[in-house]
Deep mutational scan, measured.
Amino acid sequence: ENVVSAPMPGKVLRVLVRVGDRVRVGQGLLVLEAMKMENEIPSPRDGVVKRILVKEGEIDDTGQPLIELG
Rank of each mutant, 00 (worst) to 15 (best):
E1Y: 13
E1M: 13
E1P: 13
E1V: 14
N2C: 15
N2P: 06
V3D: 04
V3W: 14
V3H: 08
V3K: 06
V4Y: 04
V4Q: 03
V4A: 04
V4L: 06
S5H: 14
S5G: 09
A6I: 05
A6E: 02
A6N: 06
P7Y: 07
P7L: 07
P7G: 09
P7S: 08
M8W: 15
M8P: 04
M8R: 08
M8S: 10
M8G: 09
P9M: 11
P9W: 10
P9I: 08
G10V: 07
G10A: 06
G10D: 00
G10H: 04
K11G: 02
K11F: 09
K11V: 10
K11M: 09
V12S: 00
V12N: 00
V12Y: 00
V12G: 00
L13R: 05
L13F: 03
L13K: 09
L13Y: 03
L13A: 05
L13S: 05
L13E: 01
L13M: 07
R14Q: 05
R14I: 07
R14A: 06
R14E: 03
R14F: 05
V15M: 07
V15K: 00
V15S: 00
V15I: 15
V15H: 01
L16V: 02
L16A: 00
V17Y: 00
V17F: 00
R18Q: 11
R18C: 11
R18D: 07
V19G: 02
V19P: 08
V19A: 07
V19I: 10
G20M: 06
G20W: 05
G20S: 04
G20H: 06
G20I: 03
D21K: 03
D21P: 01
R22N: 11
R22P: 09
R22D: 08
R22C: 14
R22W: 14
R22K: 12
V23E: 02
V23C: 06
V23L: 03
V23Y: 03
V23I: 08
V23D: 01
V23Q: 01
R24E: 09
R24H: 12
R24S: 11
R24I: 12
V25S: 10
V25R: 14
V25F: 12
G26F: 06
G26T: 03
G26P: 01
G26S: 04
Q27H: 04
Q27T: 07
Q27N: 03
G28R: 08
G28T: 15
G28K: 10
G28Q: 06
L29C: 06
L29R: 00
L30V: 13
L30N: 00
L30K: 00
L30H: 00
L30G: 00
V31N: 01
L32G: 00
L32D: 00
L32A: 00
L32S: 00
E33F: 14
E33N: 04
E33P: 00
E33Y: 15
A34D: 07
A34Q: 09
A34M: 12
A34W: 15
A34N: 13
A34H: 15
A34F: 15
M35V: 07
M35L: 12
M35D: 14
K36W: 11
K36L: 12
K36I: 06
K36H: 14
M37W: 07
M37E: 11
M37F: 09
E38Q: 11
E38K: 09
E38R: 10
E38A: 10
N39Y: 15
N39W: 15
N39M: 15
N39G: 05
N39S: 11
E40I: 15
E40W: 12
E40C: 14
E40H: 09
E40N: 07
I41P: 02
I41E: 01
P42R: 14
P42D: 05
P42Q: 13
S43Y: 03
S43I: 03
S43H: 01
S43K: 02
P44D: 05
P44H: 08
P44Y: 04
R45P: 01
R45K: 11
R45C: 13
R45V: 14
D46I: 06
D46L: 05
D46W: 08
D46P: 07
G47T: 03
G47R: 02
G47W: 05
G47C: 06
G47F: 04
V48N: 04
V49E: 02
V49M: 01
V49F: 00
V49H: 01
V49N: 01
V49L: 02
V49P: 02
K50S: 10
K50P: 01
K50N: 09
K50D: 05
R51Y: 08
R51F: 08
I52C: 03
L53K: 02
L53R: 04
L53Y: 14
V54F: 08
V54I: 11
V54L: 06
V54K: 05
V54G: 03
V54P: 02
K55F: 12
K55M: 12
E56W: 09
E56K: 09
G57L: 06
G57H: 05
G57A: 05
G57S: 05
G57M: 06
E58M: 12
E58W: 14
E58H: 11
E58Q: 12
E58T: 10
I59A: 08
I59F: 14
I59T: 10
I59Q: 10
I59L: 11
D60A: 15
D60P: 15
D61Q: 14
T62D: 07
T62P: 10
T62Y: 13
T62A: 14
G63R: 07
G63Q: 07
G63T: 08
G63C: 10
Q64S: 11
Q64W: 12
P65A: 11
P65T: 07
P65C: 07
P65L: 07
P65M: 08
P65H: 08
L66G: 02
L66S: 03
L66N: 02
I67A: 03
I67E: 01
I67S: 02
I67M: 11
I67R: 01
I67L: 10
I67T: 02
E68P: 03
E68H: 09
E68I: 15
L69S: 02
L69F: 09
L69H: 01
L69N: 01
G70Q: 14
G70I: 14
G70P: 02
G70F: 15
